[in-house]
Simulated scan of single mutants.
Amino acid sequence: MEQWFSLLRNPIGDLDIDTQKWVYRSFYQFVYHDTLFLTHDRTLTEDIIQDAFIKASAKGPGLGPDTHLPGWTKAVARNTTIDYLRKLKKDRKILSTSSVNINEASVHEISVASEIETKERNELLRQAINELKPEYRTVLIMFYMERKSYREICKELHIIENVLSQRLVRARKKLLVHFLRKWTNVNELL
């Protein structure tokens, strides 16, 4: 198997810093997709992987030679994930049963502020889209606003899917740059 599995059998503190980082990165990559599949949250996944690594590196030196390390590693990550999800569910249940007193004026103020921010963001987004080159603007509008499939767009624009895919990637990047410049300028004024 991979070399880092065997390093989990050693006390992590006995390894040099670079090797520790390498073992952690390898562990992270090995369990990331499975953990993300269960949580659907990247930030939570990273927290869980850190805790799972701590558990694995603490218990690893005590494992017997017949332990199947890849399966054991996945089990540690999966069990840590399940524990986290149970705790979150319990915390949500406690929060939902406790009495929360929110006055209606506060809710109205928040919704009005949110609505104003949404309108401002949408206006800036429209401006940013209009600043794009026509070929970028066209594919963004067709794909996101008109909800056309790749096949429909390719047929209409007489291009192949690879070209469309590449154009969409570039258009999104350009749009992000234009939008963030506008959004940052507006927020600096506030």
Rank of each mutant, 00 (worst) to 15 (best):
H158V: 11
E135N: 12
S149P: 01
K148R: 13
Y144S: 04
P134Y: 09
L157C: 08
I153G: 06
H158Q: 12
K148D: 03
E156I: 11
A128M: 02
Y150G: 08
T138N: 12
V139L: 07
L157Y: 02
M142Y: 13
I153Q: 12
R151F: 13
I159G: 02
L157H: 05
P134L: 07
T138S: 11
N130E: 15
Y136L: 00
L157I: 07
R147G: 11
M142E: 11
M145L: 10
K148N: 05
C154G: 15
V139W: 01
E135A: 07
R151D: 15
R137W: 04
M142S: 02
I141E: 08
C154Y: 07
A128L: 09
N130Q: 14
Y144C: 02
Y136K: 12
L157G: 00
C154N: 13
L132K: 11
K155N: 12
F143N: 12
L140E: 05
V139P: 04
L132M: 05
K148E: 07
Y136S: 03
A128F: 00
E131V: 14
R151L: 11
C154D: 06
E135G: 00
S149M: 01
E135V: 10
I141M: 06
H158L: 13
A128K: 02
Y144H: 02
I153D: 10
L140V: 03
I141H: 08
P134D: 07
I159C: 15
A128H: 01
I160Y: 13
I129W: 03
E131L: 14
K148A: 13
V139K: 11
S149D: 03
P134I: 09
R137E: 13
S149N: 09
F143P: 00
K155H: 15
E131F: 06
I159E: 05
E135F: 10
V139A: 02
T138C: 08
I141W: 00
N130T: 14
E156P: 01
Y150Q: 13
I153V: 02
K148W: 04
Q127S: 13
E146Y: 11
H158W: 13
Q127Y: 12
Y150W: 02
L140K: 08
